[in-house]
């Protein structure tokens, strides 16, 4: 906000009558160059937006983009600012891509800490979860980004790295088991510590999220994550407007851009409304259990109490909220 005000002030100063009269008096080499630079900038904008000044973005769009450019980090925004931002993004999506989305900035529900359990015995590798995740989270169809990976494992193995993550044949195969991996939403997340711009953090309900606009794309978090939980956009993600999930969340499945990091958010747009994440809902074998860790009657607590559970790379003290269990 401050930066924007300053800029406006500057503009006003430049166009104030006193200065213009001064300029008229001594129109030198410097002023000429200034003018030329401005003309060149305008020209290049026109070129970029598709030749000719008639196709320049509308005044409304330019204003929205200007405001969008100077918005704060999500955690510093007030509730009204969040609301304003979300409305702006909805309008921009309408103008730019002609899609009417509904974006939310719903805060974490108090008294909730999300936990996830994955039944290694039940998973049969149908990958319905992966397909549902791609659809729900508007993942890039071109580069085939996926948050979830399913590994086909030999008996006795424990680490997904040793499994086959590229299988494509009829499943389940005799003598193999299947293990899914995604972001584990660590309670002590190394990715958050690695971020130099504070673009990623842990929400009060335990979800590790990214403010896409504050991400500078340095990929330190990707390097810091011991579970390969993060994905990077090398190009602008391509999602056909028809297939786009319209119900979005600012921290969740809204459209990302090139050079931004993204990751599983436990479908924040769904879970904060009491719904199950897309992967849990899509699972045909019931291998995925999701719920509130702080609720003694929840399914996840039942699993943790009654089943043999383990977490990946527990010795790193990242404290993931994602357990594997066997029947």
């Amino acid at each position: 906000m401050d930066i924007r005000k300053n800029n406006e002030n500057k503009n006003q100063k430049e166009s104030s009558p006193n200065q213009t009269t001064d300029k008229k008096k001594k129109f030198g080499r410097r002023d000429f160059l200034k003018g030329a630079a401005k003309a060149a900038a305008l020209g290049s904008v026109a070129m970029a937006s598709g030749c000719g000044t008639a196709l320049l973005p509308s005044k409304e769009e330019r204003e929205l983009r200007w405001k969008e450019y100077f918005k704060k980090n999500y955690r510093l925004m007030t509730v009204s600012e969040k609301e304003e931002t979300v409305r702006r993004l909805e309008r921009l999506a309408k103008i730019k891509k002609d899609v009417s989305i509904q974006m939310s900035s719903k805060a974490a529900i108090p008294g909730v800490l999300y936990g996830y359990a994955f039944n290694v015995t039940r998973c049969e590798g149908f990958m319905e979860c992966v397909a549902a995740c791609v659809k729900e989270n508007n993942l890039d169809r071109k580069s085939k980004t996926q948050y979830i990976r399913i590994f086909e494992m030999e008996p006795g193995e424990m680490a997904p790295a040793a499994g086959n993550g590229k299988y494509f044949h009829e499943v389940p195969v005799e003598g193999h088991f299947y293990m899914g991996a995604q972001c584990f939403h660590c309670e002590n997340p190394p990715c958050v510590k690695a971020c130099p711009t504070k673009a990623t953090w842990k929400e009060p309900d335990g979800i590790v999220v990214v403010d896409y606009n504050w991400c500078i794309g340095c990929r330190y978090c990707m390097a810091a994550c011991p579970y390969y939980g993060r994905r990077f956009n090398w190009h602008d993600p391509e999602v056909p407007a028809k297939e786009m999930t319209k119900k979005q969340h600012y921290l969740g499945n809204r459209m990302r851009a090139r050079g931004q990091m993204e990751k599983c958010t436990f479908c924040v747009q769904r879970t904060r409304e009491g719904r199950l994440p897309a992967c849990v809902e899509a699972c045909p074998t019931g291998a995925r259990v999701f719920g509130n860790l702080l609720d003694p009657k929840s399914e996840i607590r039942f699993v943790l109490k009654n089943k043999k559970v383990f977490r990946l790379k527990e010795e790193l003290t990242t404290d993931p909220k994602f357990w594997y269990f066997i029947d």
Partner: peptide, 9 residues
């Protein structure tokens, strides 16, 4: 037994 819904890149 059936084919998976998708595949991983």
């Amino acid at each position: 037994k059936r084919w998976p819904a998708t595949y991983s890149h």
